[in-house]
Amino acid sequence: MALHNRVSRKELKERILQDNTPRTTLSFYCYFKIEDPQQFRNNLYRIFSELNVLGRIYIAHEGINAQISVPSAYFNQFKTTLYQSDQALNNLRLNIAVDDDGKSFYVLDIKVRNKIVADGIEDPAFNMANKGKYADAKKFNDLAADSETIIIDMRNHYEFEVGHFENAIEIPSDTFREQLPMAVEMMEQHKDKNIIMYCTGGIRCEKASAYMLHRGFKNVFHLEGGIINYVNKVKESGLANKFHGKNFVFDQRLGERVTNEIIAKCHQCGKPADTHVNCVNDACHLLFIQCEECAKEFEGCCSYDCKEFIHLPEDQQKEQRSGIDLGRNVFNKAKSRLGNLSIKS
């Protein structure tokens, strides 16, 4: 069988939108040594293709990072197959999506990378085995109740903007590799305090906790399973939910509703809104927050310039797009780009 997709993404997306098969969206990761990432990737592609798994998976010598959807009828078979694929993955925690429409992914992409999380760490003495202590939902709430505890959000600004934990500190940078040294610098005077780090599914905050310990911090925790697992656990256990707003996710949904609070604002008019969209202009695709009124006014575009562009004849659009990286602003992290949006007077 082919070890990569051969059907156009446009066709695949249309197929999944028309398919009513119930699907379960989930994510998982594991830091463990993979001797031959390419072989591991190929074996996984064969297994997952047979189960009609869709999604995005990264493989590296340091482990695996996956966000996928599985036909619900195959979920138990998928879980068994995954657990049996490698001893390190046996009984691995699977983070089930909080708010799922089954349309999160439409293609299976499995890629080999240098690292499953780009961290910029070059110190050979750094060891992921020496990581912070897990904090489950109850432990997180207990620690958070102490005014001396420091809660650090290890996500990007557009994730933090639409939802975060009470009293969480944002690390104001554009990439995870920049956040790590910044977090150390910002917390330098608090090395003996309890520090909890969190992210979407746990993979970034787990590495961040190991880095903080590596840099001399003492009492570092990381939220087990990240926001996704926390929200599911507080619901199951009847615990108080300390997360407010929406949990940003890197798939077609662009967010999971956790609470009804809207804590962000439309980037075009300033009204309360937390719906992320990508500009429909194929020469832009900027990720930004847009309310329903502005979506109509700008026809799904981020600016009047882009709105004007999409009404040009197709041949003119193609000519002007020539040489442009069409996806350069998808999940764009630079806050400076948001200042270019057209604000309605």
Rank of each mutant, 00 (worst) to 15 (best):
M154P: 06
I151L: 10
S322G: 04
S27F: 03
F250K: 02
A137H: 05
R155Q: 12
N232L: 02
N260I: 00
H222P: 05
R253A: 10
I196L: 13
Q189I: 00
F140G: 01
Q290S: 12
Y304C: 00
P124W: 14
G339C: 07
K271E: 12
E188C: 00
Y74E: 14
I34N: 04
A135R: 06
Y106P: 00
A208K: 05
Y45F: 15
V220Y: 02
R215D: 01
A97N: 05
L51Y: 05
L286M: 13
A295Y: 15
N76C: 02
K333H: 12
G201V: 02
K103Q: 13
I47R: 13
H190R: 09
D100G: 07
I47F: 07
V277L: 05
T21H: 04
A73E: 14
G245T: 02
I343M: 05
D119R: 03
R9Y: 14
K207L: 08
S336K: 15
A118P: 00
N329M: 11
Q84C: 06
D305C: 00
C279F: 09
F165V: 05
R23L: 07
Y304H: 09
E161N: 13
A334R: 13
N5S: 15
S342E: 08
V280H: 08
I262Y: 03
A137Y: 10
Y158L: 06
L94N: 03
N219M: 01
H222D: 02
V234S: 08
R215I: 01
I150R: 08
V98W: 01
A118H: 09
S8I: 05
G55I: 07
K207N: 05
N156T: 11
N52E: 14
S49K: 11
L287E: 09
N247E: 04
D146T: 01
N194Q: 11
C301I: 03
Q38Y: 07
D119C: 05
P71K: 06
F28W: 01
F126H: 07
F217G: 03
K271R: 13
V234N: 02
E299H: 12
